[in-house]
Design a protein around this nucleic acid. Sequence first.
DNA 1: GAGTTTGAAACT
DNA 2: CAGTTTCAAACTC
Length: 598
Amino acid sequence: MEKPLQLCPGSVKIDFASASYAGKADIAATAAALLHALGPPRTPPCYQLPLAKVNSSLPLWSPVICPSTFAQKRPMSLPSPPPAKKLQVQQSSSMLPQDFPKLEVLPVEKPTKLQVRRSPQHVSPALKQDSPKMEKPLLPRPATFIDVMLSSQKPSSEMWSETKDVTLTRKTNCSCKYSKCLKLYCECFEKGRYCIGCNCTNCCNNVNHENARQDAINVALERNPAAFMPKVSNSTAHNCESKAAEGDIMGKHTKGCKCKRTECLKKYCECFKASVFCSENCRCTGCKNYKSNADRISQKNTVHAHHVQNPASSGMVGQSVIIFHAAENDSSLSLAASVSDHSINNNTSHALSCSLTSSVTREDAKSLVKYVPHEVTYRPSLADIIQIEDVNELCNLLILVSRQAGATLLESGMKENTKRKKLNRVDSCLSSTNHDREAIQKEPAKQMCSLEKSSNEVLIAEGRLELPRADPFDIQKGNKRPLSPGTQALMCDEQDAVFQDSKAPDATPSTTEENLVDIFKEQEKRVLTNFRDYLCKLATCGKLQELKLSLASTNCSEQAFADHGNNSSITRVAKVTRIRQTIPQFSSKAASTTALDV
DNA sequence: GAGTTTGAAACT
DNA sequence: CAGTTTCAAACTC
């Protein structure tokens, strides 16, 4: 006997509208059509839908099935397998399965499977009429331990997502043949859901075999009480790119994996599959599924030569690994850092990682890797080339150049001023005072003083010179934070201007300003010229260093490959070629950068 | 799509 | 607990 399904306020909520906010417009439309076919609820809904999330084009009522009414008024026989297609709309997440019957509307091709139709045009014509066929309403079943656990442990959104996954948009259907979908081999069973639209054979993971299913659940629970618990705890799946980029990935597999061959970088690995890094729970071998992408790359060079144990087991896991790698900022590495893409870009990263791992053994590398919680450190590629002494040296050089330029021009300027003063003296007939003369002469002296002070301040900052006594230019007094040489130089210029305004009011403005402008121009010119030359030298050093390390790493890699006998000459040649190709790129880039900067 | 590989689950 | 077998998904061709 087939009767149209009637909706009434009750304990069952079929959240069709949720499909809409899951971005499944077609499904939502299907659901809407289904609801329309079923007719509106006769009374206001018992539960409010999350209106903010509901597509306005969809009915806002919450379709509800009243089990009691359903059971009492329309007692239906439990038929043998349904004849044709059916759609099972599972209960919403917040409801326990025993509370609600299941709505079946569309026939399924397989007797024991429930097919999902995703497009409105696939809705059964019978549905588009007002009388869906209820061949087999699912009676309430007792809540299983799984149901309780899953319901209690997951927020409703997650549960609904999973429910959606099962009923409407599930991407993975099992294909079990021998387990009857009643063992944990079966993904559906493992996740505590019925097989719906699966390709399994002899499936018992459905309501028709509820008893067998319950038994299987009990067996599984007996063996492992956490068998149906979520396998990933505290999960922040690292396919969330923003979090991954920030390194804010905390989830881990509760049981861990034991991968041996896949380096935990394939979906065979449960951790990888669950989008979490391997953790201390894992007992994997050659693991590369841990946070530091650079370490993955580094290990890629040594994994062939060494049996690398799970870094998590040695504390080298998750947040704790410092990237001991040069090219963290490299775009190719950023790409590789995308956790969803665990493939490693071998072009630049390989060369760079080779450079850094070239001459170290695994033990050396271990000692080099430092552990700092929740911190990732960027190590510049020129870190070993540019030392603080070099920076100081550069600063000194620039200061000296600046001083020389200033002194040279000041000397000529003083001569001019002296001439001009003599003329002024004649013109004013001894009207000028010594004060005036001193004031004028104080200007170049002040310039010299200024330059001297800026130089001294650099030296002070370097710790090479003791702090002078009370000094009007002492920017470090008053417990202020020491300034960089560049800042000090800038402030020195500013202070010169102040000094000029306040202490040389009597100086001839035009003459002094012209001199100063000339001095500054010359100083700037010489400083920049020397700075450019310095950068060119630096670029050369970097180039040589890279070449040296690359060649060394090439030799190292070749030896490693040779040790394991799985190297090919083609691969080696390709790697060497790749490494060497990076060198001119770097040097040309550095040169162009230098030219632009200068 | 068939065959192979892989690792978890199940079993001993 | 370790080793082996079974199983199904992932992967390769």
